[in-house]
């Protein structure tokens, strides 16, 4: 996945209305009018959001039917999800490592600061 595709996907997902539209499409294809219904928005405003989603490759429009149903395209979402999971895993490892290091710091400090005094637990 290129960075540009990824950032298009992230950008598309950054807006709550667009996330709502994707969630709706996850349950099945829908017309622009049907997608606009839950929001206090014109179909034109919803069309703008759909344009962003289409640019990110997340939504395609049917050609045959007159109402041109919107369809969720899952693969960019999956790729973005993989990348985000990897990012989270990096930070999980990083924080596990920080946690262990903090224990070392505390240990060396109590030894250095109070060499003769046993810890409170004893």
């Amino acid at each position: 996945m290129t960075g540009d595709t990824l950032s298009s996907t992230l950008f598309a997902l950054a807006d709550p209305t667009r996330r709502g539209i994707l969630a709706r499409l996850a349950t099945g294809d829908a017309s622009v009018k049907a997608l606009a219904e839950p929001y206090d928005m014109s179909t034109a405003a919803v069309s703008k959001h759909l344009k962003v989603l289409a640019r990110a490759g997340l939504v395609s429009r049917g050609k045959e039917a007159q109402w041109r149903p919107c369809h969720l395209e899952a693969s960019p979402l999956e790729e973005a999800f993989d990348w985000l999971s990897e990012y989270r895993r990096f930070w999980d490892r990083n924080l596990d490592s920080l946690g262990s290091y903090l224990e070392e710091m505390k240990q060396s400090r109590s030894v250095k600061d109070d060499p003769a005094v046993p810890s409170e637990d004893q």
Partner: peptide, 23 residues
Amino acid sequence: LGFTGPIEASCLRLIEILATWIN
């Protein structure tokens, strides 16, 4: 496209839910 307002700071919950559905 005229989107200039702030967005909510999100944990991308939706992408997580959708990914579950995709898989």
